[in-house]
């Protein structure tokens, strides 16, 4: 595995590792880590850093929905064109072209169900290429981006063992 791969694995696991710790774990110098991160960012390999938040544990109401979209294409309009148009909306958090019964799978976020419904009906459904939308409201999230929420990770090992 290259140092770049190592860095990527470490950042995926915890984007808040300090440069010093990244250097310690990869046997690189801090300067080399900084340079490698700068390259990864400028090449767009690392597109951003975000926290994984369990909104159910906060006072804020965050409503999430997964939306299946069917679209029609024509000579002038490809998937990429439609995706670009949809992705510009800040409510759209994830947008993927998928195989199967529908074309796009979209994750949408809003502050209420009403908010999300209005967005789908007024912004997404009217897009001329969109022929059908099926919206699934998220009721509970158990695991997000590889992190189990509500995970009981108490260490129940003996504190000292041979």
């Amino acid at each position: 595995m290259t140092a770049r791969d190592d860095l990527l694995d470490l950042l995926v696991e915890d984007a808040r590792h300090t440069t010093a710790d990244l250097a310690r774990m990869t046997d690189l110098t801090e300067d080399e880590v900084e340079a490698a991160l700068a390259d990864l960012e400028s090449e767009g390999v690392v597109a951003g850093y975000q926290a994984i938040v369990d909104w159910e544990k906060t006072d804020r109401e965050v409503v999430r929905a997964t939306v299946e979209l069917n679209v029609t294409l024509d000579r002038e309009t490809g998937y990429g064109d439609i995706a670009e148009r949809l992705a510009r909306f800040p409510q759209v958090k994830t947008l993927r072209l998928v195989s199967g019964d529908y074309d796009f799978l979209m994750e949408v976020e809003g502050s209420s169900m009403h908010d999300v419904s209005i967005f789908i009906s007024e912004k997404v459904a009217p897009v001329p290429e969109v022929t059908q939308t099926v919206t699934h409201y998220v009721m509970t999230t158990y695991k997000d981006r590889g992190v189990a929420l509500n995970d009981d990770d108490d260490d129940d090992r003996l504190s000292v063992s041979p």
Binding site: L158, S159, V160
Partner: peptide, 26 residues
């Protein structure tokens, strides 16, 4: 008895111990 046993008992006396004395995976 194992010399490790004594350390286990000392470590058990307090609850803020970070143990790097464990011989099994976490």
């Amino acid at each position: 008895p194992s010399g490790i046993r004594r350390f286990f008992e000392l470590a058990e006396e307090r609850d803020d111990v970070i143990s790097l004395g464990v011989g099994e995976p976490d």
